[in-house]
Simulated scan of single mutants.
Amino acid sequence: MIAARISADRLHLQHGPIDLIIGVDGDREAAFAAAEARFSTILEELVAELPLLRKPMPVAPRGHVAQRMARAAAGYRDFVTPMAAVAGAVADEVLTAIRTQTRPERAYVNNGGDIAVFLAKGQTFNVGIAGLDAAALGNVTLRSGDGIGGIATSGQGGRSLSLGIAQSVTVLADCAAVADAAATLIANRVDLPDHPAITRERADRLDPDSDLGDRMVVTGCGPLGAKDKRRALENGARLAQDLQAQGRIKAAYLLLQGESRVIGIEELAHA
């Protein structure tokens, strides 16, 4: 495990595939110690239940992080495994450890772009929304009363395989695990089945350990016409709107080849 300060107010933790950047305003030394202590066992806990976590919902894992993953992935009609929420759940768990041991004014745990956030009363946090290619797409100011504790981005070309063609889908929710699972499923819905511009391959041929098994994942998408882009985005936007209406997410930003759909972000801006 690697634990290193990368600036006066940021800590880098890395263990296997998990890579965190943590920032805290408040009792920073105690917060970083709490984060490092909790992080030190997370990978082993997840590996112990990995076969179960790669199975479709519903499953009932035992570990704290695994349970966060399962809760975030529960209740969907679409195919999903707890792995859809793993990055967000790890971020949530480390942030909870910080909050249990200290009383930060602001804190965040960034797990490869899936971020758990805490804001004490009266605090704000400026968030830059970026695509999976790191291109800036806009900014949102989070306020302590917004009820947002997690931000996650998914899409074709990201760290994980995708069933859809979205360049990126960014979701804001009450925790990072919920945002992570929702972003994955919304991104999967941004799709045009059987379109000739889209290439696909079996997930298990690209990654024998993929939780998607023999499902066909997108490996490329050529230029699409305006109508096709709108149709694909609307497929994802309908799910995002349903999840917002259910109170499951706060907002979402969907991007495909220069076209976008925004759900709820304007409401946050004027809250």
Rank of each mutant, 00 (worst) to 15 (best):
E49G: 01
K227G: 11
I263T: 09
L239W: 11
G158N: 07
P104D: 00
A30T: 13
A203L: 07
R38A: 07
R159G: 08
I42Q: 00
G75K: 09
G236P: 15
D92R: 07
R202N: 04
V178G: 09
G236F: 02
T219P: 14
S7W: 07
A8N: 12
Y253N: 07
A107I: 07
G150T: 08
S168A: 09
A70F: 09
R159V: 05
L95V: 01
R10Q: 15
L46H: 12
G63C: 12
A232V: 03
K250H: 08
P82T: 03
T124P: 04
P61E: 08
L52M: 14
A60W: 01
S162C: 12
G63M: 01
P51L: 11
R71N: 05
R205L: 12
V47C: 04
A30Y: 01
G128Y: 09
S162E: 12
A74F: 09
D114Q: 00
A187M: 00
A89Y: 01
I98D: 01
K227L: 14
A84M: 06
V169Q: 00
D174L: 14
D78T: 14
A30S: 08
A60E: 09
R231P: 00
L255P: 09
R106E: 13
T219D: 05
Q241P: 13
L172W: 05
P82A: 04
E45P: 03
V171Y: 10
I148W: 06
V65S: 02
A183H: 04
R143A: 13
A97T: 00
K250Y: 05
I129Q: 06
G236H: 03
Y76A: 04
T124R: 14
V178K: 13
A232M: 05
T124I: 06
V178C: 08
K250T: 15
L233K: 00
P196N: 13
V127Y: 08
Y108T: 08
L172M: 08
E234M: 10
V90P: 00
S144P: 12
I186C: 06
G213W: 11
V65Q: 03
E259A: 10
Q14K: 14
L256R: 03
Q241C: 15
Y76D: 01
G222D: 02
A8W: 04
Q244R: 14
M57H: 02
D207I: 12
V169H: 06
D9N: 08
F32H: 04
V109W: 05
G155S: 07
A152Q: 01
Q241G: 15
A34T: 08
A87M: 04
A35R: 04
A34F: 05
L46W: 10
A4F: 14
R54M: 13
A271I: 14
A187Y: 08
L95G: 01
R28W: 04
D92T: 10
R62E: 09
Y253F: 15
Q257E: 12
D27M: 00
Q101K: 14
G225D: 15
L243T: 12
A33V: 04
P193M: 05
A181H: 00
P17R: 02
R238K: 14
G264A: 10
L185V: 03
A240P: 15
A136Y: 13
D242Q: 14
I2N: 09
M57S: 07
D194I: 05
